[in-house]
Amino acid sequence: MPRIAYVNGRFVPHRDAAVHIEDRGYQFADGVYEVVPVFYSQLIDEDAHLDRLERSLSELRIAMPKSRQVLKMISAEVMRRNQLTYGFLYMQVTRGVAPRDHKFPKAAKPALVMTVRQTKPHTSEQLEKGIKVITTPDIRWQRRDIKSISLLPNCLAKQEAVEAGAAEAWLVEGDGTVSEGSATNAWIVTADGKLVTRKADHLILSGITRLSLIEAAKAAGMEFEERPFTVEEAYAAREAFLTSSTNLVMPIVQIDDTPVGNGHPGMLTMRLRQLYIDYVTADPATRKNQEEAA
């Protein structure tokens, strides 16, 4: 079955999808994006992703291209046309097409693109094996809270990880603390079993999976702390893992050349993964009760 994309009001074959060469996303990375996971043909945390999309656009002074209800209708139609059951929906909004000039154009119309990708759930073997991450200096700009399509530093970090035989790169500030991964949020479990991840401010992207996992962990009564942690603290951690819309909760078994814990996925990490899946697939009333109980 051919893939179908949505581009500025039209559903087109994915291979034919295109934007104008003077789209400001192409020329200036002047736009934002969202990646929404899909389980069993259902968008996960759709409203939270749309909240973040709206916030990112507001920070860049780009108007929402459609109302929230219309965006949901388009998303559902793109999924239907592609028969998407498990994977993710990608949506991108740019400032639109205008003659090349650094200042904001006065009359450009925001451009909207949506695509989907079918993926397979992680296998038990993958989860039992875990992944390796490396650390590398964080060279990005200071507004990482905006989900910008300007991702060149992230791509450089990811490539460095791949060339080192790792799955992800953790980005490190000048003070030695970990900010986040090139495309993920970073977590550790301390020796006394406390969950630690950096507080969401302008130095990291507030991941939607991260937010849902925090709520799931609170509902389960787990100890949790939002604060920076150093690379050395990560080396000494009992467990480590990352979160993202495409990885969910993924155990980390090695950081640079240092095994994490006993070098195998941690029991708490695997419990958190299941808690997250149970939390996001629960009906809204059940989730509300879990949050109130916490």
Rank of each mutant, 00 (worst) to 15 (best):
A169Y: 00
I134G: 00
G165L: 06
A219P: 00
E160I: 06
M222G: 06
D175G: 08
V231A: 14
E163T: 08
K158A: 11
V196G: 00
G181W: 05
R210P: 01
T230W: 08
V196Y: 00
S182W: 04
I139A: 15
I214L: 15
W187S: 02
W141Q: 13
E233Q: 14
E223P: 08
W141K: 11
N154W: 06
L211K: 12
L152P: 01
E215P: 01
T209Q: 03
P228C: 03
A219D: 02
A167I: 00
A183E: 07
S124N: 15
N154L: 06
L156H: 04
T135Y: 08
N185C: 13
R198H: 10
S150V: 03
V196N: 00
R227Y: 09
E173D: 13
A166D: 02
E128Y: 09
A237T: 04
I149Q: 06
R143A: 15
S245V: 10
A186G: 11
T136S: 08
T177V: 09
T190C: 02
E225L: 14
V162D: 14
M222P: 02
R238N: 13
S245W: 11
D175F: 07
H202L: 05
V231P: 09
T123L: 11
L195K: 03
A169N: 01
F224K: 08
I131H: 07
I149L: 12
K129H: 14
K132G: 09
G165E: 07
L213K: 04
A217R: 03
A236K: 14
T135D: 09
C155R: 14
I214G: 01
L151N: 05
L211W: 12
T184K: 05
S212G: 10
E160M: 14
S179T: 12
K218N: 10
F224C: 07
S212L: 04
L195T: 02
A183R: 12
G193F: 02
L195H: 05
W170I: 00
I214R: 11
I188W: 00
T135I: 13
T177R: 12
P153K: 06
K147F: 08
W141R: 11
G221S: 10
G193K: 05
K129V: 10
A191K: 13
